[in-house]
Amino acid sequence: MKFTVNKKEVFASTGGRPFDKKKPLIIFIHGSGLSHITWVLQTRYFAFHGYSVLAIDLPGHGYSEGPALESIEEQGKWIADVIDSVGVKEASLVGHSQGCLVVMECASQFPDKIRSIGLMGGAGAIPMNPELLELAEKGDPKAVDLMMDWAHGPAGHFGGHPVPGLHHINLGGSIVINGSVKNALGVDFRACDNYKNGFEAAKKIKCPAINILGDRDRMCPVKEGKKLADNIKDSEVEVIENCGHMILLEEAGKSLAILKKFIRNNHPAE
């Protein structure tokens, strides 16, 4: 659905069901340069099981009006604005990669609006490889190829997508390429690299949290994810074997099962 946040048009997938503000809301926040498409194997389930879902396109991504927001702090604030814009008092947030930083920042700045948080591949900081950052800021598609290489574990490189016929790396790459390498991915990478407040934000989080990690994740190694979880008061960690950084797609079924249990316990639907 399309709606307005801060006078700009925003697109969010509602998981195939009409948005209903009477139902508990879950907001899904994608990773660097990506879009709502990455959440399709989580959103439809929740949308058909008692929740309202908004898998948002961050500003300047997917079908949302730009420009992209240049800092994680702004993006965290913007998520709170999304909650206000749709007329809801509170939401659970689920993020992937950069989206995890946004989730933490929002939950720390606006604790009363956030019921629970789910992180997939969450770390306290995402320092960027300088060469990768430079390529992305120049708009070089090679940045996408490198990102897709590093982001995917064995399933991405060999095969075995949970949805028959889909190709992990080419699908992920096309989501980024269909947007703007320079104005979305480049801005996101710089925002991640600049963000130093992750552990401080984590300490301020009051709601229940879960960090779902992949043991083959080269972008957010398990030890970094556990370090982050140690800084969140009420948090748990789940590690999925043979899984890279694209947990939400590589192990869509397992990550959804973990998320279902967590959300149902902490933000139940009637």
Binding site: L41, R44, Y45, G159, V163, P164, G165, H167, I169
Partner: peptide, 25 residues
């Protein structure tokens, strides 16, 4: 279509899926 997986081999099949992903790649 909330989750991926096989239901019936008219729709998809694990051996056929290998071929599909290989040619897509």
């Amino acid at each position: 279509l909330e989750q991926g997986g096989h239901i019936y081999s008219r729709i998809s099949n694990p051996t056929v899926q290998v071929l599909e992903e290989r040619v897509a790649a």
